[in-house]
Design a protein around this nucleic acid. Structure first.
Length: 874
RNA sequence: GCGAAAGUGGCGGAAUUGGUAGACGCACUGGAUUUAGGUUCCAGCGCCGAAAGGCAUGUGGGUUCGAGUCCCUCCUUUCGCACCA
């Protein structure tokens, strides 16, 4: 045995053995129960980053643990290979996205192999391969047939300089990131998936999932089921004459129909037909509407911007009193939500209150809350509370005194009695999923647009519609829209000349079902019966940033597949582990064109203020100043990622794995720092040395029971079996690896203190070392494999079961209790394990520390917590 | 702005069910080994205090025999907000 730990020698050697024996290829049937653990697939950005290392090492540790516990485990891997970064790289380097992506995949796959993750590579999937995206297209058409897919207009960010649609990420402070041009909103036709049709099921089935409660809560809030009333604010006579839409008023939805008597104005979106009509002879209003259309579509931006409005000069009527109610255009009313119009009740809605104050509109109290004084001077949070209706006026006096639910029923009945349409309705915050992207590097939408027949499906036998791989985007529109060879085609219906849809699908489509394709990557159908074996995913692991969108889309997609009879499961992911983000500092500055440029943290020298906080930085290259943006998640676009490659080369994969796993619990965020890696390496060297010294004296049969061991040896065995128990609990139940590793470190610290070299001690040593190696093997499988061979020649670590706890080793005669006086620690008390409460109490009262700190005062109360402490209250 | 989390020594973190705050590490300090660097080993290491002891888990309150843990307030940071993935 080599006296030195040499990761560079053992790691490739162990990996070769795994590959040669196909150690991680999972069979599609087995007498063992299946355990399917999947990590969110990586985007092939070029190299792995620390988030990947963390994610896949967690998955890998669980793979090994569950395998040792007797499961048929599968850990697959694939590539989320379509997307924007490939197009950006293409623009920067003139390389086709396909070539760039495939080269990145090849490199990153090599990195995954060097990390030693137990991936079944026979199931590898890349979403950019036609054999995968064919099924995106096929399924899209099935959903279209069912009416789950439909077409309507949607709003996008438009860069007028580049004449192109921008992703939200490409809009910075309202400007295009490359051009610096002010971004505008633009409406274009797009394909949608009717996820709202599944809203109730998506909401209700969250309850049964083994997911973190906060993620389920985020999804509930995102779906946002609310119960309200939809009704119409009738046009005033003059308005009716102007509006030639065949309608009789403006449709609105509200969850607070009980406040209807407080309506003092209405607000519509800039794109609302009423606003368009009013602007025809009002240049001021037309200019304001134009202003509202400027800027991007991001909700955070819209929600934080200053609320502005302008009167249209047109009125609607209060549906009950018939009073004229002015209609305003508000920049905060969105055409895409509901009907693009809202009733405004400044008296009981905070946003309406602020708007009314700003523009001098009337504020009316119509709800009172017991014992509280209303004043229109300043908003109070209780104004929005449910309460009792007051001041409803002569025409609706029966509303007075009623409370929320009752009031709403009364309002709906009243409106109907007046002959006005009004009905209770469920409303969701969730919107249908727009999947059209005006981009090149994605799944082509399998639709042909025929001048005679309209939108026509590409026949199944012509799928996949192949994406040409040789195009290079230049930033101005999609190259597909300019590629005649791609878009020119015959109409499948009439045979006449037609044009393909040149949009591609949102990449969330790709990631909505890849975990099913792993089960049957070579299937001639979308999925086959092997998916029935592996699905659902038993544990899904990935970043918390995906808590809403990706996870919701994948849930929806699974349900849609189920409804087409393709899978049998209702939910894709039984359990979920949301990994915390790996953060790093972000440095940037604006370039000459007004765009923004990022700099990797290792290329800048940070400048700190008096308190040690970073306040700026200079570029190491030329000393020029750059701005500090704070800390944020590691990302390609912000250039603050850390490449684990250097760590692998310098320390070996096991050290890198050990470090990321022991640094913090998996769900916590981590601010990256590479200090502390030395400690991980030091530990592995120590472990190697311990085994080497033991083996040098000859391997022995491990101890199998307490027999008549000396007290230090019994103590060591007690610690060992406590540790086996704890580590299993940490891996299997708590999914907390840092404490598992710390527990093994504690055990080995105790072992290292043992001086005894007797045969009995050597048998205990053998038991401790064997168990420690197995306990650590999920985290550091290479060194564990190598050391196992030395300890148990002729056997293979991968075939070992998880060690069993010896209950006899855990029996103790005496236990140590904490002694408190008035809740403060004052000493300890050794009692026999079966001491009664009375005996403990009596012993505590005789305890010298109790006598001292009680100072002669009489004990008022003695609290005994069995096995833990005794607290004397004086 | 809205939704979800987090905040404990110089640093990462531990304390799993309301019961010994700081496990296990990193960094640092002193010592041993070494020609030196590195390695390895031993000891120390929350703050105040000579000690006894006191104080201490972002802030301020509350519940309790007992609070890092539960409740309320505020502050800060992170994630998401529908075209980054």
């Amino acid at each position: 045995m080599d006296p030195q730990y040499q990761p560079r020698r053992i790691e490739p050697e162990v990996q070769r053995e795994w590959a040669a024996t196909r150690a991680f290829v999972a069979p599609d049937s087995s007498p063992k129960p299946k355990y399917y653990c999947v990590s969110m697939l990586p985007y092939p950005s070029g190299k792995l980053h620390m988030g990947h290392v963390r994610n896949y090492t967690i998955n890998d540790a669980l793979y090994h643990y569950m395998r040792m516990k007797g499961w048929n485990v599968l850990m697959p891997m694939g590539w989320d290979a379509f997307g924007l970064p490939a197009e950006n790289a293409a623009m920067a380097n003139g390389v086709a996205p396909a070539k760039w992506t495939r080269e990145n995949i090849a490199y990153m796959k090599g990195q995954c192999q060097a990390m030693g993750w137990a991936i079944d590579w026979t199931r590898e999937v890349a979403t950019c391969s036609p054999s995968y995206y064919k099924w995106n297209q096929w399924f899209f058409l099935r959903l279209w047939e069912k009416g789950v897919v439909y077409k309507k207009t949607g709003v996008v960010n438009w860069d007028p300089a580049d004449q192109t649609v921008l992703a939200n990420e490409q809009v910075i402070d309202g400007r295009g990131w490359r051009t610096g041009a002010l971004v505008e909103k633009r409406e274009i036709p797009m394909w949608y998936m009717r996820i709202t049709q599944y809203a109730d099921e998506l909401l209700d089935s969250l309850d049964g999932l083994g997911w973190p409660e906060q993620v389920k809560q985020m999804q509930r809030n995102w779906i946002g089921r609310s119960y309200g009333v939809e009704f119409v604010l009738p046009y005033a006579p003059g308005t009716q004459a102007r509006m030639k839409d065949g309608k009789h008023g403006v449709k609105v939805f509200t969850t607070r129909a009980d406040t209807i008597m407080g309506i003092t104005f209405a607000a519509v979106a800039a794109e609302h037909p009423l606003a368009t009509e009013a602007a025809k002879d009002d240049p001021g209003l037309a200019a304001f509407i134009e202003e509202c259309k400027r800027g991007g579509v991001q909700e955070a931006e819209l929600a934080t911007m200053e609320k502005k409005g302008m009167p249209t000069g047109l009125d609607v009527l209060h549906p009950i009193t018939g009073e004229r109610v002015p209609v305003w255009v508000g920049n905060y009313v969105l055409m895409a939500y509901g009907e693009g119009a809202v009733m405004a009740v400044p008296g009981h809605d905070e946003r309406d209150f602020a708007f009314a104050k700003k523009y001098g509109l009337p504020i009316r109290q119509v709800i009172e809350v017991e014992g509280k004084e209303y004043s229109v001077d300043e908003w109070q949070p209780w104004y929005a509370d449910h309460g009792r209706n007051v001041d409803s006026g002569a025409r609706f006096a029966e509303l007075d005194g009623r409370e929320y639910d009752d009031a709403i029923d009364t309002v709906v009945a009243k409106l109907n009695a007046l002959g006005l349409p009004a009905a209770k309705r469920v409303q969701y915050r969730l919107r249908d999923w727009g999947i059209s992207r005006q981009r090149y590097w994605g799944t082509p939408i399998p639709i042909v647009v025929c001048p005679k027949c309209g939108d026509v499906a590409v026949p199944d036998e012509d799928l996949p519609v192949i994406l040409p791989e040789n195009l290079v985007p230049d930033g101005s529109g999609s190259p597909l829209a300019r590629d005649r060879a791609f878009y020119e085609c015959k109409c499948p219906m009439c045979g006449g000349a037609a044009k393909r849809d040149t949009d591609t699908m949102d990449t969330f489509v790709d990631s909505s079902w890849y975990f099913m394709r792993y089960a049957c990557p070579d299937a001639g159908t979308m999925v086959d019966p092997r998916a029935r074996y592996w699905m659902p995913v038993d544990l899904y692991i990935g970043g918390i940033e995906h808590a809403i969108l990706h996870l919701l889309y994948a849930r929806f997609w699974t349900k849609a597949m189920r409804d087409l009879g393709l899978v049998h499961v209702d939910e894709p992911f039984t359990n979920l582990l949301t990994q915390g983000m790996v953060l790093n500092h972000i440095f940037s500055r604006r370039n000459a064109k007004g765009g923004i440029e990022y700099f990797p943290p290792d290329e800048v020298q940070a400048v700190q203020d008096a308190e040690g906080r970073i306040c700026g930085a200079t570029l190491k290259g030329d000393g020029s100043a750059v701005d500090y943006e704070g800390i944020g998640t590691m990302s390609k676009s912000k250039r603050n990622g850390v490449d684990p490659q250097e760590m692998i080369e310098r320390y070996g994969a096991d050290t890198a794995r050990l470090y990321v796993m022991e640094a913090s619990p998996p769900t916590d965020t981590v601010l990256w720092s590479d200090k502390g890696v030395d400690g991980a390496l030091r530990f592995l060297r120590r472990l190697w040395k311990m085994v080497h010294e033991h083996v040098a004296a000859g391997v022995v049969a491990p101890c199998r029971g307490d027999g008549d061991l000396s007290s230090p040896l019994r103590e060591l065995r007690f610690k060992l079996h406590r540790t086996i128990e704890k580590v299993g609990d940490d891996y299997g139940r708590r999914l907390q690896f840092n404490t598992a590793i710390a527990a093994v470190r504690e055990l080995l610290n105790l072992y290292a203190d043992l001086q005894d070299r007797s045969p009995a001690a050597r048998a205990v040593a053998q038991e401790v070392l064997e168990a420690s190696i197995v306990l650590l093997s999920p985290v550091v499988p290479h060194i564990a494999t190598a050391l196992w061979r030395e300890l148990r020649p002729g056997t293979r670590l991968l075939d070992q079961p998880w060690p069993a706890v010896d209950p006899a080793a855990l029996v103790k005669d005496t236990i140590r209790l904490v002694v408190q006086v008035n809740g403060k620690l004052r000493g300890h008390l050794d009692v026999s394990a079966d001491a009664s409460r009375e005996e403990i109490e009596a012993a505590a009262l005789r305890h010298e520390a109790v006598i001292k700190f009680a100072g002669g005062r009489k004990p008022k109360k003695v609290v005994v917590v069995p096995g833990r402490l005794v607290n004397v209250v004086v």
